Amino acid sequence: VDNKFNKEQQNAFYEILHLPNLNEEQRNAFIQSLKDDPSQSANLLAEAKKLNDAQA
């Protein structure tokens, strides 16, 4: 993981990586967004979790 991520951002990265119901395309999009703007990690994680739950 890129060293410019802080602890919260790293946690978001790993959580998104391991959400079971996202397809690869969705997962990659969230990860790319996280890399583009790490400050949005909490929002991105919340969105990813919502999508993950919706696809459960």
Rank of each mutant, 00 (worst) to 15 (best):
18 H>D: 09
1 V>T: 07
36 D>N: 06
54 A>E: 14
34 L>K: 00
29 A>G: 12
18 H>V: 07
23 N>Q: 10
3 N>T: 11
7 K>C: 12
13 F>C: 04
42 A>C: 15
15 E>A: 06
55 Q>D: 05
29 A>K: 13
37 D>R: 03
39 S>A: 05
35 K>Y: 03
49 K>V: 13
19 L>C: 05
34 L>S: 01
44 L>V: 06
47 E>T: 10
14 Y>T: 12
35 K>D: 04
28 N>I: 15
26 Q>L: 03
28 N>A: 10
40 Q>A: 08
37 D>V: 10
39 S>L: 13
9 Q>A: 09
32 Q>I: 13
36 D>K: 04
41 S>G: 04
10 Q>D: 05
20 P>K: 05
11 N>E: 15
33 S>C: 12
15 E>N: 04
5 F>R: 14
8 E>V: 02
11 N>A: 12
25 E>H: 12
50 K>H: 10
21 N>T: 07
22 L>M: 04
16 I>D: 00
51 L>Y: 06
21 N>I: 03
21 N>S: 11
6 N>I: 04
19 L>D: 01
45 L>F: 04
19 L>H: 03
4 K>V: 08
10 Q>P: 01
16 I>M: 09
8 E>M: 02
27 R>Y: 02
4 K>L: 09
21 N>R: 05
14 Y>Q: 14
3 N>Y: 00
55 Q>L: 14
11 N>V: 15
9 Q>D: 05
11 N>M: 15
22 L>N: 00
29 A>N: 13
47 E>G: 10
55 Q>I: 12
34 L>R: 00
35 K>T: 06
32 Q>Y: 05
44 L>M: 07
11 N>Q: 15
45 L>S: 05
27 R>G: 02
18 H>G: 11
2 D>F: 01
8 E>Y: 01
40 Q>T: 10
25 E>M: 12
25 E>D: 14
31 I>C: 03
6 N>S: 03
23 N>D: 05
28 N>E: 15
13 F>R: 06
23 N>S: 03
16 I>L: 10
52 N>T: 03
18 H>L: 12
26 Q>W: 08
41 S>I: 12
31 I>T: 12
6 N>R: 01
49 K>E: 03
42 A>N: 13
5 F>Q: 10
14 Y>H: 15
10 Q>K: 12
19 L>W: 02
29 A>Q: 09
42 A>F: 10
44 L>Q: 06
29 A>L: 02
56 A>I: 14
26 Q>D: 05
9 Q>C: 10
42 A>H: 14
49 K>P: 00
45 L>W: 04
13 F>W: 13
29 A>R: 03
42 A>P: 08
52 N>Y: 01
33 S>I: 13
33 S>Y: 02
7 K>S: 04
56 A>K: 13
14 Y>E: 15
50 K>S: 12
2 D>H: 02
20 P>N: 11
15 E>C: 13
33 S>A: 08
2 D>S: 02
1 V>I: 12
51 L>D: 02
33 S>F: 10
8 E>T: 02
30 F>W: 02
46 A>F: 10
38 P>Y: 02
33 S>V: 10
12 A>F: 03
35 K>L: 14
46 A>R: 03
31 I>D: 01
42 A>I: 08
23 N>V: 05
44 L>H: 07
26 Q>V: 07
8 E>G: 04
40 Q>K: 14
44 L>A: 02
11 N>S: 11
27 R>L: 07
7 K>Q: 12
40 Q>S: 11
9 Q>G: 03
55 Q>P: 11
9 Q>M: 03
3 N>A: 04
34 L>P: 00
3 N>R: 03
8 E>A: 04
1 V>P: 09
11 N>I: 13
15 E>K: 05
51 L>E: 05
24 E>S: 13
39 S>V: 08
51 L>R: 08
16 I>F: 02
30 F>P: 00
41 S>M: 10
2 D>I: 02
3 N>H: 05
18 H>I: 09
55 Q>A: 13
6 N>Y: 02
3 N>K: 05
31 I>Q: 06
42 A>Y: 09
7 K>V: 05
33 S>D: 10
55 Q>V: 11
19 L>M: 08
26 Q>R: 03
30 F>T: 02
49 K>S: 11
20 P>H: 08
31 I>H: 06
14 Y>D: 13
16 I>A: 01
2 D>R: 01
39 S>W: 07
50 K>P: 00
28 N>W: 10
48 A>Q: 00
51 L>A: 13
4 K>Y: 08
15 E>V: 09
29 A>E: 10
6 N>D: 14
25 E>W: 03
25 E>N: 15
45 L>Q: 04
52 N>H: 03
1 V>W: 01
33 S>L: 04
50 K>D: 06
18 H>R: 09
50 K>N: 09
13 F>G: 03
36 D>Q: 10
40 Q>Y: 10
56 A>L: 09
10 Q>E: 13
12 A>R: 03
28 N>R: 12
20 P>A: 07
50 K>E: 12
56 A>Q: 11
24 E>I: 10
25 E>G: 10
45 L>T: 06
4 K>W: 15
34 L>I: 06
40 Q>N: 07
55 Q>G: 10
41 S>R: 04
38 P>C: 03
50 K>V: 14
23 N>C: 14
56 A>H: 12
43 N>T: 06
50 K>T: 12
27 R>F: 03
1 V>A: 07
17 L>I: 09
46 A>Y: 09
28 N>G: 05
7 K>T: 14
37 D>K: 08
31 I>Y: 04
23 N>A: 02
26 Q>F: 04
6 N>W: 02
6 N>E: 15
15 E>Y: 07
22 L>D: 00
15 E>T: 06
56 A>G: 13
40 Q>I: 10
18 H>S: 14
56 A>E: 14
6 N>M: 03
34 L>E: 00
34 L>M: 07
14 Y>N: 15
20 P>T: 09
9 Q>I: 08
7 K>L: 03
55 Q>N: 12
36 D>F: 14
21 N>Q: 04
46 A>H: 13
39 S>M: 14
51 L>T: 12
54 A>C: 14
